Amino acid sequence: MTTILIVDDEYLIAEILSFALEDEGFLTVTAGTAQKALTILDRERPGLIITDYMMPGMNGMEFAAAVRENPQFSTIPIVLMSGAQAHLGSARPELFTKVFEKPFEIEAMVESVKKLLNQ
């Protein structure tokens, strides 16, 4: 079973995504900050990461860059979800496999995750 790491400081968004993905058979782990997510990576070994852009401390772009710098995690698909900053993620395809603008359709997110994981 594939684990998906969801990184968002908005608890409700993380929980809704988590429930939707678990309904499709995925395991999910959530983190409220990018710093916490970096500590979770080694333990959970996710097959995919979904991250917000605007978060306290480290933003989604800085988080994705930190993930990409680690050879163990450099090929993990990273999906960015953001409101006003989605265009910044779209301009960085080396960091983000897919970009969703908030608000997004949960079904579209789930379908993209399934495609990215070949499921």
Rank of each mutant, 00 (worst) to 15 (best):
Y11A: 12
E94M: 07
G60L: 02
A86Y: 09
L116D: 01
V67L: 05
G89Q: 07
E10L: 10
G47Y: 02
L41W: 01
A86I: 11
K36C: 04
D9L: 06
V29P: 01
Y11H: 10
D52V: 05
G89V: 04
M109N: 06
K115G: 12
K102Q: 09
A34D: 05
Q119H: 10
S74D: 15
T2P: 15
A91T: 06
L88I: 14
M55I: 08
A66Y: 03
V29C: 11
D42Y: 11
I50H: 00
F104D: 02
L21Y: 00
K115M: 12
L80T: 02
P71E: 15
A20Y: 04
F19K: 09
G83E: 11
K102V: 06
L88A: 09
I106R: 03
M61R: 14
A91M: 12
L27M: 10
E24N: 10
T51S: 04
L12K: 09
L117A: 11
T51H: 01
D42K: 13
G32R: 06
S112D: 12
M109K: 06
P46A: 04
Q72I: 10
V7H: 00
R45D: 09
Y53K: 08
A37Y: 00
L5S: 00
S82V: 04
S74I: 08
E69A: 15
E10N: 12
K102M: 07
A31D: 00
A108N: 12
A84V: 13
I4T: 00
R43V: 14
T30W: 03
M55F: 06
A64D: 07
M58W: 07
L27V: 08
I78V: 15
M58N: 05
K115R: 14
F26G: 00
I78R: 01
Q72T: 14
Q119E: 09
D23R: 15
Y11D: 08
E94V: 08
L5A: 02
L95N: 04
G47S: 14
V29Q: 09
E44W: 01
Q85S: 15
L95K: 07
P103Y: 03
P71Y: 07
N59Q: 07
M1W: 05
L5H: 01
L38R: 01
L17A: 11
Q119K: 12
L5N: 01
T97R: 14
L12V: 11
T30F: 02
I4W: 00
T3R: 10
P93D: 11
F96D: 03
E15W: 05
T2N: 13
A84S: 14
T97Q: 14
E107R: 14
M81Y: 10
K115W: 05
I16C: 05
F100T: 05
T97Y: 11
N118L: 09
P103N: 03
K115V: 10
G60V: 02
L5Y: 00
P71T: 13
L12I: 11
F73T: 02
D23M: 13
L17E: 12
S112L: 07
E22G: 07
A14E: 03
T97E: 15
P93I: 11
D52Y: 04
P93A: 09
L80G: 02
D9T: 07
S74F: 08
D23P: 04
